[in-house]
């Protein structure tokens, strides 16, 4: 785009994205942008529209209106492969890998390296294993040295590293991480956050989707909060405190109301908090 600021256009920009399924409005005029070497944290409670937005970015859904630009060029993603062609890679919560395949094999699924001549072309296991281990090592996973190990034997963080390493190796410049820390323990989550930092350092634009404010604050440069399908806030690192963000995510007043309700309940029940299912 020629009307841009002197700096280069953002790697990925969504403008006024709206989406509905039947009569249900899921996203309303959501605009986001993320630059090279930057982590954009997309925060939102369950049902805020995060998953729909991810699916739009990864080409699973086409938005009803709005536009998507990659490096300033307008694009439409008609399939996941389409979105991958523009350098977007989506990594899901469990890494989207194959538990009973070896690390090297699963790293190259669908893009197998081959050696030899047709019709006797062979899967290049040695190369695959070396690359997979090397890419994981570059993301700080030093515990994995054998590409013949099964993916299912890796920890949650290591699987994320495998998936992220794969995306980076195959030229992803924009990583969409869907709740990468949600299913992990504290230590593993810290590991994944380190991997995110490592990816950022490589100049990759990261869209980090989460509902864990602490994790977001640790790695984020830029934050956007989704509430009921609309962007409720957009701010940079250091502009808002943890409490403010949590309040925002829960819908501001709603949180205050809930707290008042809880207080009232506790008073009425001799200090016992209500039971949470």
């Amino acid at each position: 785009m020629t009307t841009e600021t002197p700096t280069s256009p953002p790697l990925l920009r969504l403008t006024d994205i709206s989406m509905s399924f039947g009569s249900t409005q899921v996203l309303t005029d959501v605009s986001l942008e993320v630059r090279r070497g930057e982590v954009l944290c997309l925060l939102g409670d369950n049902g805020a529209g995060k998953s729909t937005l991810i699916k739009i970015m990864s080409g699973v859904y086409q938005p009803k209106s709005g536009k998507i630009e990659v490096e300033g060029r307008p694009v439409t993603f008609t399939s996941p492969r389409d979105s991958a062609r523009y350098g977007l890679a989506t990594v899901h919560q469990f890494g989207g890998t194959f538990p009973l395949m070896t690390i090297g094999r699963s790293f190259f699924v669908g893009a197998e390296p081959e050696k030899g001549f047709w019709p006797l072309k062979r899967f290049d296991r040695k190369f695959a294993n070396e690359v997979a281990v090397r890419e994981m090592r570059q993301l700080g996973i030093t515990r994995v040295t054998d590409g013949d190990r099964l993916v299912g034997g890796l920890s949650g963080g290591e699987r994320q590293a495998l998936a992220i390493g794969r995306a980076v190796y195959f030229g992803a410049s924009i990583l969409v991480l869907d709740e990468p820390t949600a299913a992990l323990g504290v230590k593993e989550a810290a590991h994944v956050l380190r991997i995110v930092m490592a990816a950022r350092k490589k100049g990759i634009a990261v869209v980090f989707i989460t509902h864990q404010v602490t994790h977001a604050l640790t790695v984020g440069d830029h934050f956007a909060v989704l509430i009921r399908g609309a962007k409720a806030a957009d701010f940079r690192k250091g502009e808002k405190s943890r409490e403010e963000i949590t309040d925002l995510m829960a819908g501001g007043e709603a949180m205050a109301e809930l707290e008042a309700e809880l207080d009232a309940y506790e008073n009425a029940h001799e200090g016992h908090a209500p039971q949470i299912a």
Partner: peptide, 16 residues
């Protein structure tokens, strides 16, 4: 061959 990788991947996780 690489086709083996495809077969394992299909049986391991169809959507992926």
């Amino acid at each position: 061959s690489k086709y083996g990788n495809w077969i394992f991947a299909i049986g391991g996780d169809l959507e992926s």
